[in-house]
Nucleic acid binder design. Sequence first.
DNA 1: CAAATTTTTCAAAGCGCTTTGAAAATAGAT
DNA 2: ATCTATTTTCAAAGCGCTTTGAAAAATTTG
Lengths: 353, 353
Amino acid sequence: MNLKQLSKKIGLSQTTISRALGGYPEVSEATRKKVQLAAEQNNYRPNTRAKSLATGRAMAIGHVISFNSKKEVVNPIFSEFMSGASETYANNGYELILTIAHEEDESKIYSELKSKRSVDGIIVHGPRKGDSRLEQLQDVGLPFVVHGRVSGSELEYSWIDVDNQQSFKRATKFLIELGHERIALINGDETMDFASRRRAGYLHAFAEHGVPEDLSLMRSADLTEVYGYRSAMELLPLPNPPTAFVVSSYIVAIGVRRAIHEVGLKLGEDVSVITHDDELSYFSDNDDIPQFTATRSSVWLAGRRAAEMLLDIIQNPEKPPQTKLLKTKLTVGASTGPNRNVTLAAKRRAAGE
Amino acid sequence: MNLKQLSKKIGLSQTTISRALGGYPEVSEATRKKVQLAAEQNNYRPNTRAKSLATGRAMAIGHVISFNSKKEVVNPIFSEFMSGASETYANNGYELILTIAHEEDESKIYSELKSKRSVDGIIVHGPRKGDSRLEQLQDVGLPFVVHGRVSGSELEYSWIDVDNQQSFKRATKFLIELGHERIALINGDETMDFASRRRAGYLHAFAEHGVPEDLSLMRSADLTEVYGYRSAMELLPLPNPPTAFVVSSYIVAIGVRRAIHEVGLKLGEDVSVITHDDELSYFSDNDDIPQFTATRSSVWLAGRRAAEMLLDIIQNPEKPPQTKLLKTKLTVGASTGPNRNVTLAAKRRAAGE
DNA sequence: CAAATTTTTCAAAGCGCTTTGAAAATAGAT
DNA sequence: ATCTATTTTCAAAGCGCTTTGAAAAATTTG
């Protein structure tokens, strides 16, 4: 069923039907009702492709996720974020076009999406430090919103981001105030922008409290459970081990917890762990007392906001770039406690080993 | 830059350019080269929307993910699967349109995607037992491939699925042959088709070996870490506790492991755990000896295959439905061992508690 | 009741592409 | 050189919609 057929069927011109359905005022309420009913009954909906062609708007947003080298790492954060964005799109008649591409193809993808007129705008996921994609996108002339920021960049662009630096500073301070001084940082890959900001926040806390920092307590890699486990397994048996960990994701914290248990220490008593938690619904724990003390921020909500921002930018191209910095909330769970200085070495000594 | 402009620029008709770029034989190699070069230089690519309108094919595949009630659970499996599918789409000039919808809106989504002509086919994610979506889709007349199956259904439809039953039967047998008899099942939500098949496989193994089954050792819920933890925490302190667990996902197994540690037992020695592992790259552990004994199956690959299948169906609508059953491989890790009958109760007794 | 307004509806053009059917150019045969 | 067969190119129609500018109908006014 297309416009022409419907038009013939109900004896009204295509123009009138289009206007009635589009909510234009140049049509009486009586005919609008009539048209809406007929459209409903005949299951008529405008062909999106024809509509796009006629209006020049694709009515679609591109989400480009890139992976680098080795494995096709599709971070669960992305799907959570898209789920949030998706709600906004659905409410505004937009479609979400997902592209998963190798990092080195990414700039080609952008210019293709532009020249093929497949999308009206783009969400950039997972920006790296000094990421060149922003320049590319600006050259290409496609509206975009970045989930995250790019530190080095001089460009004016729209973004939405968690206040990673502030968040990790606060988390680290929290531990320092509990008496911890040997605090490990199990960070994400620090070529990623978010991770470098987190490290900066962590270091700031040390500086402010005059606590000496120790490079050997900092790790940086992709955020997997095994990475958390291995890092902690390396650090805990040291002669002067960390008494606390600041961790960049929930899944990594789980690995750290495994290591803590494995060496016979108790989480939240012998060793404290504070983690960033993106509140992925998939991992959500609804415990009364959350397992981990965490800095929380809803990725789902960030997705929704990012989408709203992008649609606004598309509709008002003359506006200056928009930005939104999301604060995290620090929720105290069972994984942190005062520094008792109960290290593995001390324990062993006590046990007379 | 559009066809008309390019046509004017290089002095060839739109027809010729379209044919040259489309790889049709009615154009000499010389002009084809010339056209390709010009298209390249002018960064010309056909407008997808116009192309779709002209050809009647959307050149897009819809992935519809539904969530039910409570939280917007976007399973990481979906993104991994889409990542695989995405590769196929990219190679064939298709776009991936992602829709995340509330369960009850889903049938409306299908008929919309159809009547709006946004997609040429659909991938159905996460089918439930007796899922009504298949009938809806068949009524709507949109080609589709299901990731998973629907047990109750009489319909002929295309699907790709892991052999869940066989897989869980094998896993359970593996444990039985190690001497375990009290084997807990920490399954997914059994309204989901995959979970009900897994339970069937688990029960089959018991039946075949004449081992009595115990309903109180079976759990069914959404696959979260906390669910695994709580289930194991309930089961392990029982007077006659399980000595082994069959678990439906890696993340749940992590929760089970936490509980095992917490009650002071050793994984792989006191208690065995075997889990299904969807080989999500995000969780991948590259240990020499994997942490968990697991039945493995690559979701990424399943995504690729599903997409290939769907494109084939779209191109050859006359073909009968296709199906593909993926076998899992059982890889032995450090989480399983012979039944030593070392239960928590026994340990406590030994410790004189 | 006719003229002037306002409201409602419409025919036709155009969005950028593919594709049909025809024409022009080239090659091959006589 | 002429005629036929083949290759190469093209003009024009059509895909299903929106939107402009005009016409028809309904309403208000003198």
